[in-house]
Design a protein around this nucleic acid. Structure first.
Length: 261
DNA sequence: TCGCTTGTTGATGG
DNA sequence: GCCATCAACAAGCG
């Protein structure tokens, strides 16, 4: 689930519920989500600190405080929940932050593929995010052209490579390529000017729509709304969709609208 | 039991 | 160096 639009939704939760609040307590229900920090270390670092800002880069959420910063990555099944402290615990609540207004922020994650990191200061945040490409929401057509230039890999592999462009996952990439009418296996350096333009337009359009609702849109006229149907059809041409393994992931595409290379 | 899953990383081979 | 593929991580589902 969590791709750029989902994480942007969690960022809003963090901003709305957390900014200006003090962290009164940190409860680690499952240390399995902590990365390079112990439960005690996390608690000591954050207890009594005030949350100052909620930032996002790609799929990373950054909670800045008047002390260290917290970096959260939601993997495939994670989410951030804001709720009253007396709400019954959920079995997948891995870390709970008590705020000074009687509410809590909860890092909830079924699988524990990613998790939570601590960064001492701004430089440490930058180091942890150093391998990330620019955030997809900040990239315009010219910027995308620069990022794609000279790359021979399949275009879906490039779009979902976080070190090239941060924020796009499997569903978003398929949605964008379907909208741009480009086959996901096309070589990136084989796209002509018009195709690159369509790709940039589709990316911005899909991201804008998705961020507005906080997840990849499942509107009727989207690939995402149909990709998991028993016999999925293309909402544009009505033909059958295909599912193949492309760039290592299950990929939905339309053989009519997105001619294979 | 096996295969599959919206994420990331590292090994391996071309 | 670039690129594709695969395994691993973890947990649940059919």
């Amino acid at each position: 689930m969590p791709e750029l639009p989902d994480v942007e939704g969690y960022r809003r939760i963090l901003a709305d519920e957390g900014e200006g609040r003090r962290v009164d307590e940190v409860r680690v229900a499952d240390p399995g989500v902590l990365r390079e920090v112990t439960p005690g270390g996390l608690r000591r670092a954050l207890r009594g600190r005030r949350i100052e800002a909620a930032d996002r880069h790609g799929k990373w959420l950054v909670a800045r405080t008047d002390g260290p910063a917290l970096l959260l990555h939601f993997g495939m099944t994670g989410r951030l929940v804001g709720c009253p402290a007396d709400e019954p615990p959920h079995r997948h609540d891995r870390v709970v932050f008590d705020l000074d207004d009687g509410r809590q922020l909860r890092f909830r994650d079924q699988r524990k593929l990613q998790g939570i990191r601590l960064a001492r200061d701004r430089a440490a945040v930058d180091r942890l995010l150093a391998g990330q490409g620019p955030d997809a929401l900040s990239v315009d057509a010219a910027g995308l052209d620069r990022l794609l230039a000279g790359r021979r890999a399949g275009v879906k592999a490039v779009l979902t490579d976080q070190s090239v462009l941060a924020g796009l996952g499997n569903l978003l990439a398929d949605e964008i390529l379907w909208r741009a009418r480009i086959h996901p296996s096309r070589r990136t350096d084989g796209l002509d000017r018009a195709e690159r333009r369509r790709l940039a337009d589709a990316m911005r359009r899909v991201l804008r729509d998705s961020v507005r609702v906080g997840h990849v849109p499942a509107r009727r006229a989207s690939l995402t709304a149909h990709r998991d149907d028993a016999e999925p059809t293309c909402p544009r041409c009505g033909g059958p969709l295909r599912r193949d393994r492309i760039a290592g992931r299950t990929t939905a595409w339309c053989p009519h609208c997105q001619p294979p290379p």
